[in-house]
Design a protein around this nucleic acid. Structure first.
Lengths: 199, 199
DNA sequence: CCTACCGATCGGTAGG
DNA sequence: CCTACCGATCGGTAGG
């Protein structure tokens, strides 16, 4: 659990390419990363990349949909367990924070570079994204109905929470200052603390 | 006040170019926007752009530093007025939200595309950004000292707040659902409500 | 502000 | 997995 490794990885050459690509797409952006740059980091010629992947966009698709599946799967599990809406929400947020720390490059890329996906992947991804956010909003609305959560606009709350968490970005580099667990607790205090009704 | 116009604009041809560029850089990203694309939207040939600007990067510099100045200037004003740390913080956040609604394209671009700046502008911008965040963190720390704000890690709080606000992005398109003022109040409730000590 | 154009670099393929 | 290469497109300039 503590050692839960990042998603996939160097197992295969393709895994290595995806890993290095995620790191470069995050740093420079998808459009500003060339296949020649990527090939150099991987350690082969640009043309050789095409023995493992069929296009630059396919790499982005792999990263984005792997993360989408990852988050959707976790949400399925949350919804399957019977717990209060507030603790379900808390579990979802903690999962997001954990992913931000453990799979930083991929999460960042699927969060910020998805607009470079091509159709039909673009529409598919956007739909999944919208659906996922609605599931969280539904959790909040349920909590409001049950008087566990203060009455606020749930869609606003979802946006605030997800974007707040994606802000861990700036942190990652100075991760000594605060441990992952402290960060998680700190964020939950600020984000959920403000919603809990009597404290 | 209500009609406070967006920063600069079509006054000159250069203003028009910067405006259109901001819109395109936001939509497609800086690297994925070509000078030919931009020229077409402006209504001239690509080569003619260079009579008004000297390079693609100069456009990005103009956008990023104009926004940086804008936020720094407002922070100067906030610090110059004598008010509680909590209300100063609230004023800063309300200003950010307002900018997100009024100058959406520019704020978005200076927030997400600054990494494409070249040296020495890149370092300059990053320094200004860091300094600005420290000023907000200082406001929070002061509030904590004065027992106006719950003791939390101020740097974490700054990141959460700024990223939460930059999340209004997703909203902009469906701005009928909720008015700018409602949005502002909703966000402040969630963000600052969680920090206020007795409520 | 346009036509004409430059060298560089891009994603990707052929063929081995 | 490499060498050799393609057509397209890039940011930008010359010259008027």
């Amino acid at each position: 659990m503590r050692m839960a490794k990042a998603i996939r990885k160097k197992a295969s050459k393709k895994g290595l390419i995806l890993q290095k690509a995620a790191a470069m797409f995050r740093q420079r952006g998808f459009a500003a990363t060339s296949m020649r740059d990527l090939a150099e980091v991987v350690g082969i010629e640009a043309a050789s990349l095409y023995n493992h992947i069929s296009s630059k966009n396919e790499i982005l698709e792999a990263i984005c949909f792997e993360m989408a599946n990852h988050f959707n799967t976790h949400m399925d599990q949350i919804e399957a367990t019977r717990q209060s809406a507030l603790s379900a929400l808390e579990a979802v947020l903690r999962f997001h924070i954990k992913q931000m720390v453990d799979n930083y490059e991929q999460v960042y890329v699927s969060d910020r570079e998805w607009k470079h996906l091509q159709e039909p992947y673009l529409s598919n991804f956007q739909t999944q994204r919208r659906t996922y956010r609605k599931r969280i909003a539904h959790l909040i609305d349920t909590g409001i109905q049950k008087k566990e959560i203060l009455p606020i606009d749930s869609a606003t709350a979802v946006l605030i929470m997800l974007h707040a968490i994606s802000g861990i970005e700036s942190w990652h580099r100075s991760k000594k200052r605060i441990s992952a667990r402290e960060l998680e607790d700190n964020m939950l205090t600020i984000l959920v603390g403000g919603l809990r009704k009597n404290h």
